[in-house]
Structure formats: structure tokens, C-alpha cells
């Protein structure tokens, strides 16, 4: 399936996939850059939207218009943590009011499929609408479903797919208590190398407009994706080889690999084993020191790979080793979180 348009929001500037610029962020929770939402969304609609909904609608609409599409046949959204800001608000209201006199707005906006439902409402799209929420493979779950839709349903030609996660004060704060966020405050670009547990947590959204057939606007071909819930780090090379062999490919045939190192020394060994092993001679890219970690961040990793295939060049800030490639035809994206929910995505130049 072909990616024909994309848009993303993260803690970095709009054009961060192609520019050399880096926004430095001190502190371990990274907010996404605010975009001019009002250009697209009317104030009467905007007033109830949490950040995830705004980011989702904005990037969804942008990615569609870049592909020249108005209403897709299917909308698939991944979100590991959903609309946390409204969930937190409503939970606090229940406590404060002792279950009395509650207003429904936050509850309505708290369901995990708020973003996909709001996109459908905004675009007036009656088609297939799905929300996957499986930690760090929420986006990969959407890719898998999209691929099946295009294989099995002749009425589906175009699919909008994306992933979005937001932070909220209390709930994200809890991630400091259980070791998901680093105890010591760091500057994002100094995330690597790291010898401590935890990462830096962030917000992001990335949407892609996809079609079954190649079009003149096609930026990349998503050849396949795979989800494996549980892998031991000792098996990771074998699993990657196995995934690539599904497409008759070998690790050395990759022109670059986008790896999800997040500075958590307990789990970065999955990536390091690949970096020092089967991908030792392949150009390796990292991005989480810029964007931070969240359950939807592999969609940003995917956007990075699409951008490389499209522009055939890579800003230095993403390079994790000194290897190079003369041409970028094929890129593997691999990501996991806390050693679980492993996702593999294979992209090719169209």
C-alpha cells in the first residue's frame, strides 16, 4: 500500500524531518509544538477539543490534502493512552464532587476513539472507523488492519491512518513514579548515551494518507508490518531476519534502519544488539532524543523513513552511526517499549 501524503506534530519544528534545526528541551516531559488549529477548525468545535483531538484532526486533514483526497474509505487511529487530559479531568471531578452534579463534556471526550470519531465527524466520513490501543504497537495495529482492508474489501481504495498521544499532568506525572520517566532531569539531545532507567516522555501525532494503488504522489510503499508481543533480547536478530525473509529480503539489503532507542538502559539492548549485529554495516537512525518517547512515536519514526525515501537525504541529527548509502530504496523501522509490544515496518521507495 502506498503512502501519498503525511503530516506530523511533535516537540520539534514543522519541518524537523528535513531540516538541521533542533529544539532543545530541558525537562523530561516534552509538549508538542502548538499548530495554528484555528485555520482548520471552527472555534465552536475547537472549544471542547483536548490536545490529542486537535493534533489528530490537524494532521489528518493535512495529510489528506497533501495526497489530494477529501474523504477516505476508512479511518484508522492508534493511541496507546487515548484522551488522557479529559480522562484525568473527569476522574478528578468525580472525586471533588463526590459523584454529584457532574457535567458530561470531559467524559464524552475521554473515550479512546474520540480522535477517530471526531475525524469522521469533521470530514463527514461514514466509512470504516477503527481505534487500536495497544501500547507501542497501536500504530502498527492500524497498519496491519489497513493492509487487510485493502486486501479483502474491494470498496476500500483509500485509507487514512495515524497515531496520536498526549500527556496530562497527573497521569504522565505517575510515569516518574514507576520508572518510565528518568529520575534525573536531562536535555533531550543529550539522551544518548544513557546508563539510567526511564526515558523522556512526549506528545505527538502523525497521519498518513494511503492508497491501494500507486499514484503520482506516492512517497513510499508500505510493504509490510508485523507485531510481536513478547521477544527476548537474545532472539531479536532472529525475529528481524524472520520478518525480512517474509519478503525474501536479508538485513544487508536495508539501506537504513530507523531504531527506537529511548535511553532506557534496561531495554535499549534490543536495539544495540541489532546495531552491533546484523545492522552493523547499515546506516542507523535514531529520533527519540529529539521527539521523546510515547506510545504513538513509531508513527513519527515511520514519517522519518518516508521522508528519507522521498528526499533521498538525511539530516545529520538523526544519524546514529557513520555508515552511508548511495541510494535509499528500502528502510526498516523497529520499535518496542519496555521490552514489550515490538513493531516492525518495512517501507520501500515506490
Amino acid at each position: 500500500m502506498y503512502i501519498n501524503g503525511m503530516s506530523n506534530i511533535s516537540a520539534q519544528p514543522d519541518d524537523f524531518l528535513t531540516s538541521a534545526e533542533i529544539i532543545d528541551i530541558q525537562g523530561n516531559i516534552l509538549s508538542a509544538v502548538v499548530r495554528p488549529y484555528r485555520e482548520l477548525i471552527k472555534p465552536m468545535l475547537l472549544r471542547r477539543m483536548s490536545k490529542a483531538v486537535k493534533m489528530g484532526i490537524y494532521t489528518a486533514v493535512k495529510s489528506l490534502s497533501r495526497s489530494g483526497l477529501e474523504c477516505p474509505d476508512a479511518i484508522l487511529v492508534g493511541t496507546g493512552q487515548g484522551c488522557m487530559q479529559d480522562t484525568e479531568k473527569f476522574m478528578q471531578q468525580i472525586e471533588e464532587s463526590k459523584e454529584q452534579l457532574l457535567t458530561p463534556t470531559s467524559f464524552i471526550q475521554s473515550t479512546h476513539n474520540t480522535v477517530s470519531g471526531q475525524i469522521a465527524l469533521f470530514l463527514k466520513c461514514n466509512g470504516y472507523n477503527m481505534t487500536y490501543t495497544q501500547n507501542s504497537v497501536s500504530f502498527e495495529s492500524c497498519l496491519l488492519d489497513a493492509q487487510m482492508q485493502l486486501e479483502l474489501d474491494e470498496d476500500i481504495q483509500n485509507v487514512l491512518i495515524g497515531a496520536v498521544d498526549e500527556t496530562s499532568e497527573k497521569f504522565t506525572g505517575f510515569q516518574k513514579l514507576d520508572g518510565q520517566i528518568k529520575a534525573e532531569t536531562i536535555l533531550n539531545k543529550e539522551l544518548f548515551p544513557s546508563s539510567s532507567p526511564g526515558s523522556i516522555i512526549s506528545e505527538s501525532a502523525a497521519f498518513f494518507s494511503i492508497s491501494r494503488e500507486k499514484t503520482p504522489r506516492s512517497l513510499a510503499n508500505c510493504v509490510g508490518s508485523k507485531i510481536i508481543n513478547e521477544i527476548q533480547s537474545s532472539e531479536i536478530e532472529e525475529k528481524v531476519v524472520e520478518f525480512l525473509s517474509e519478503f525474501d529480503l536479508k538485513p544487508e539489503q536495508m539501506d537504513a534502519v530507523v531504531l527506537g532507542n529511548n535511553g532506557d538502559h534496561r531495554f535499549d539492548d534490543y536495539y544495540q544488539i541489532l546495531q552491533q549485529g546484523i545492522f552493523n554495516n547499515i546506516l542507523q537512525l535514531n529520533y527519540k532524543s529529539l521527539t521523546g518517547e510515547n506510545n504513538s512515536i513509531s508513527a513519527i519514526g515511520c514519517a522519518l523513513a518516508v521522508s528519507v525515501l522521498q528526499h533521498q537525504k538525511i539530516p545529520k541529527k538523526f544519524r546514529a552511526n557513520s555508515k552511508s548509502a548511495s541510494k535509499f530504496r528500502r528502510i526498516l523501522i523497529y520499535n518496542q517499549y519496555l521490552g514489550r509490544n515490538h513493531g516492525f515496518i518495512l517501507l520501500e521507495r515506490p
Binding site: N113, M130, T131, Y132, T133, Q134, I228, N229
Partner: peptide, 9 residues
């Protein structure tokens, strides 16, 4: 251990 995912609609 293989494909595990969640739908929340």
C-alpha cells in the same frame, strides 16, 4: 506471544 492487540471503540 505473537500478535496481541486491543481495540477500543
Amino acid at each position: 506471544q505473537g500478535l496481541v492487540t486491543t481495540i477500543s471503540t
